[in-house]
Amino acid sequence: MSEPASGGATGPGGAIYDIGYRGYEGPRLRRPQAIRTLVAHTVRGAYGIGRGGRSKVVPFGLLVLLLLPAIVSLGLSGLVGPAGQRFDPIRYESYYSITQTILFLFIAAQAPELVGPDQRNRVLPLYFSRPILRSDYAFAKLTALFIALLLFTLAPQALLLVGRVLQAPDITTGLADNLPDVLPILGSAIAISLLFAALGLTIAAFTPRRAYATAVIIGVFIASNAIGGILYAVLRGEARRWVALLSIDTILTGLTSFLFSTPTAEIPSPIVKQAGLPGAVYVVATLVVVAVMVGLLFRRYHTVEA
């Protein structure tokens, strides 16, 4: 049992002071703080912050893509003048219908990133051996993805809003023209973020494999829209109206059209247009999907091995 020759030969060359182990006597916070910590940690993770540089490529790349229509629109109206907005397809109420694929790609890429590694690397037992409940973990992850997606969805609308106000002949008319849209923007962004986050995170939570999760999330998106389109083409009469509740695209469009009180003629989806369903139906449909997904998510984390 010989100690390694620490310090080499004798002599006062230097010394390592072992200050020993220090205990901790300070405050110990409870579950809510642990949940907040996990939410903050996960939101950062959704954008690759605190991870390697490569983790930032996808979320910020998609963010640039998402902002592009807003930038182009503002650029055009800058050239043509505000009158050009009348022919501009890029509007607050149509932004998500146009860019939903980017929103879904964000979910497909980042939702597995938030829950997969904890299962793949078996970090989950470390979380579950902390003073939290399994449901707290599920809640924190869902909240984090919701917040991350909300920031993502609000970014282009905020850019558009600021740009429009600044491009108006004067600030007062600019605010008067654009402020009424703020509440519908917030409402639709919250609803879409909740719907996409619940769908994506729940699917991702069922597999540690990133590629599977991404494929299934994209598959669900494409399949639901394809099934909606096919049934719309095949069905006739009353049944055809309800096709509007089958695909993610039409639920999203119905929801935003309702929140922005879009005139029926301007709704950017023939399926939603023909259905003529009351807007509240889309709200209910969204809530049902979210409730089912959250239920599955909590069940998954109740039973997952730790």
């Binding site: 901790y24 605190g50 991870r51 904890d118 470390l126 939290i132």
Partner: peptide, 30 residues
């Protein structure tokens, strides 16, 4: 209680400092 599992349980893409501090906060430390 502190728990060290038998199996691998560490995220490869975090630094030891970040990870241990995160876990300390998860256990209730400011």
């Amino acid at each position: 209680v502190g728990y060290m599992p038998e199996h691998d349980c560490l995220p490869p893409d975090l630094t030891a400092t970040d990870f241990v501090a995160h876990m300390g906060r998860m256990s209730g430390l400011p």
